[in-house]
């Protein structure tokens, strides 16, 4: 498989998917924030929410959700806002602060080194 464009659909569809919002309320979900389902999908839910809840039975990064549901990361963030706000999913945030020039402590980096050595 090679690069294929993500099907972003037409703007109207995106508008419907996200309930009319064009951006997430906050930036709380990083690309590598891991999302975990806290409930089973129900038939009343919109299909994108169902897909996310199915996927996230195992922890799944925001960027993986985006690839799986074929929606841009921005749109996935908006969908996740709803699910997070109602407790249907929880988020495990990255241990690394997002501000510029931050370097995690050496203990964490030692774990990274050890993990890579075992590859």
């Amino acid at each position: 498989m090679t690069r294929r464009p993500v099907d972003t659909g037409d703007p109207e569809r995106l508008y419907t998917v996200t309930g009319g919002r064009s951006r997430a309320d906050d930036d709380s979900c990083d690309l590598v924030t891991l999302i975990v389902s806290e409930c089973e999908p129900s038939p009343a839910m919109q299909s994108e929410h169902v897909r996310i809840l199915e996927l996230c039975r195992a922890p799944t990064a925001v960027v993986e959700i985006s690839a799986a549901v074929r929606l841009p990361v921005t749109v996935v963030r908006i969908l996740l806002c709803d699910l997070l706000a109602t407790g249907r999913v929880t988020a495990r945030h990255p241990p690394v602060a997002r501000f510029r020039g931050s370097l995690p402590d050496s203990d964490l980096l030692k774990e990274v080194l050890d993990g890579l050595r075992n590859l």
Binding site: D30, V32, L34, E54, A58, P59, A68, R92, P95, V112
Partner: peptide, 24 residues
């Protein structure tokens, strides 16, 4: 609709204790 696995061959779920996402 396609299931997650048929849309993403090779998609392997993470272990349930995965908590810390890092990036390079």
């Amino acid at each position: 609709m396609d299931s997650a696995t048929s849309e993403l061959p090779g998609f392997t779920p993470l272990g349930r204790d995965s908590a810390n996402g890092l990036k390079i």
